[in-house]
């Protein structure tokens, strides 16, 4: 077992009496205050400055999402327009929130064994972990829509069907 000695921070009297540290801290906050105040006033006066606040006023401003943000799911389709999903139920199995419900049926295409008859995803239960995306063997489900406007006024509205997930109605 290795021991890594960690030195305690040296606190001289000037730190211990706290008053100087208070002045230092006030200096930091005052600097922020006046810088931001200047930026806000300059923006009001129509000058070009850096923004005075990092706040994103969401419904008015577009949300700033990371490049790898996990957002609402979508089901991808084959070139002929049918869903890529082969109803293997791997996503349903791995989903920790148990919010995917798939019923499988025989596919009319002889080269494809099964297809999803229904594919219901309850976004009200989903924890956006992304396991379903990882589990899918045919890359049929992804979470890259960057669509945040999924809320609904009732729980039923949060359950998205296959058509909705494919972007059809």
């Amino acid at each position: 077992m290795t021991v890594r000695p960690v030195s305690r921070p040296e606190r001289g009297w000037q730190v211990q009496i706290y008053l100087l540290e208070v002045v230092y801290g006030l200096g930091v906050t005052f600097r922020h205050f006046f810088t931001n105040l200047w930026r806000h006033s300059a923006a009001l006066a129509g000058l070009k400055t850096e923004p005075g606040a990092v706040t994103i006023q969401y419904p008015e401003d577009p949300p700033a999402l990371g490049v790898r943000a996990r957002t609402r799911h979508r089901i991808l389709s084959r070139p002929d327009g049918t869903p890529r999903c082969t109803a293997c139920l791997l996503c349903e199995t791995i989903c920790p929130a148990r919010c995917i419900r798939i019923t499988a049926e025989e596919s009319p295409d002889p080269l494809i064994e099964k297809r999803a008859k229904t594919f219901d995803l309850d976004l009200g239960l989903c924890v956006f972990c992304g396991y379903c995306v990882e589990a899918c063997p045919v890359d049929a489900i992804r979470m890259d829509t960057n669509d945040l406007r999924i809320p609904s006024f009732d729980r039923r509205g949060m359950i998205w069907s296959l058509d909705k997930l494919m972007g059809k109605g």
Partner: peptide, 10 residues
């Protein structure tokens, strides 16, 4: 407002 401006908020 003072706290917001000071903390880079609105």
């Amino acid at each position: 407002k003072q706290s917001a401006v000071m903390q880079d908020r609105i």
